[in-house]
């Protein structure tokens, strides 16, 4: 038996030695995203936020079902799905997978779910527990709005720093053979609270978490932003992205402005009413599994993909006005 290679690197990072490849993927998105900037790269669309269902929550469930079904049909022997959605106890995911031979492993890291899902999917393949797993996330604008904010039809003026939850997302198959970009490493984040409390400015709350995870990664792997072509963030929006840029510069990391790509800023067109950008669990998965893989990772690329999440609930925010945040990172390479 060959000697086990060191998987754990530094304090909080992992280096994978088996090839972990994003083989196949399927993306699905809503009506606003259909008129956005990624239309050509997304696989399927729904025309309205109900899509023939009676409730927004059922539509959320259907989105997850429709997102995973094409992959599940091709690979019925896969056992695990690493995921997590934004409603209580991930009910849309669990209802969508009722009576299917697939076990969902749901995380509660809000918009950081996709990063954690990919990382744990990769870890389960690296440790040879699984030959292939599914990973992916989905979000639904109206269902999330109902859970976290006000009723959808409530007339309230949103400030320019607020973000718009993406309707849509994507799922992918991770396996150790096939073609596609490789997940070669990752860094787990810790819960960060810098005292921000404005739920209409998630960018400023999540940027420090992203910054801390990036610092931990650079330290553990002994790298700098120069070693990567892109730093793809999940849903910092334009506000959070500017803050992240300044934080990195402040810490003397030379980052190029073009190096930073934020999924929330890429999904929509400039003229759409989305304020400072998209957000939600499906934001990063929708971007990465559409334009991300089809454009950026078509050529040899080495990038950091950081999913950031805000971990508050409407109740916690009323009791303790703080928004704790977290960010998880993976290293994605294409040759």
């Amino acid at each position: 038996m060959k000697e086990a290679l060191q998987v754990r690197v530094g304090q909080v990072s992992y280096q994978f030695h088996t090839p972990i490849i994003i083989n196949e993927y399927h993306t699905i998105a809503g009506p606003l995203e259909k008129n956005g900037a990624l239309t050509a790269y997304i696989d399927t669309f729904i025309d309205d936020l109900y899509d023939g269902e009676k409730t927004y929550e059922n539509c959320y469930k259907k989105l997850i079902c429709d997102g995973i079904s094409p992959l599940l049909k091709k690979h019925p022997d896969v056992q695990l799905l690493f995921t997590g959605d934004l409603l209580n106890q991930s009910t849309p995911t669990h209802l969508a997978l009722t009576n299917r031979a697939l076990t969902p492993i749901t995380f509660d890291h809000a918009c950081a779910n996709f990063g954690l899902s990919l990382l744990y999917g990769a870890l389960s393949i690296e440790s040879q527990q699984q030959a292939a797993v599914f990973a992916g996330t989905m979000s639904h604008f109206a269902a999330v709005e109902k859970q976290f904010r006000f009723p959808n039809e409530y007339g309230q003026q949103k400030p320019p720093s607020s973000q718009t939850t993406v309707t849509g997302g994507g799922f992918c198959l991770l396996s150790s053979n096939g073609t596609g970009p490789h997940i070669t490493g990752g860094t787990l984040g810790a819960v960060i609270d810098e005292g921000f409390s404005d739920p209409y400015n998630m960018g400023e709350a999540m940027a420090p978490a992203c910054f801390h995870t990036l610092l931990a990664h650079f330290k553990d792997f002994n790298t700098t932003p120069k070693d990567y072509d892109y730093i793809i963030t999940g849903d910092l929006g334009s506000v959070g992205q500017n803050i992240l840029y300044d934080l990195l510069r402040e810490e003397n990391y030379r980052v190029n402005r073009n190096q930073l790509i934020d999924a929330g800023c890429e999904i929509y067109n400039k003229n759409q009413p989305i304020f400072s950008g998209g957000s939600g669990a499906g934001c990063l998965s929708l971007f990465l599994l559409s334009k991300g893989l089809k454009v950026y990772f078509k050529k040899p690329t080495r990038a950091l993909v950081v999913a950031t999440g805000a971990l508050h609930s409407p109740l916690s925010l009323l009791q303790t006005p703080h928004i704790p945040t977290i960010a998880h990172l993976i290293v994605l390479e294409s040759k």
Binding site: P159, F196, V239, I243, D246, S276
Partner: peptide, 19 residues
């Protein structure tokens, strides 16, 4: 990095409401 520095940077980028 100190929380104050982070707060200062965050404040700089907070888009003002068009009052």
């Amino acid at each position: 990095m100190k929380t104050d520095t982070i707060k200062t940077i965050a404040k700089k980028h907070d888009p003002k409401r068009p009052l």
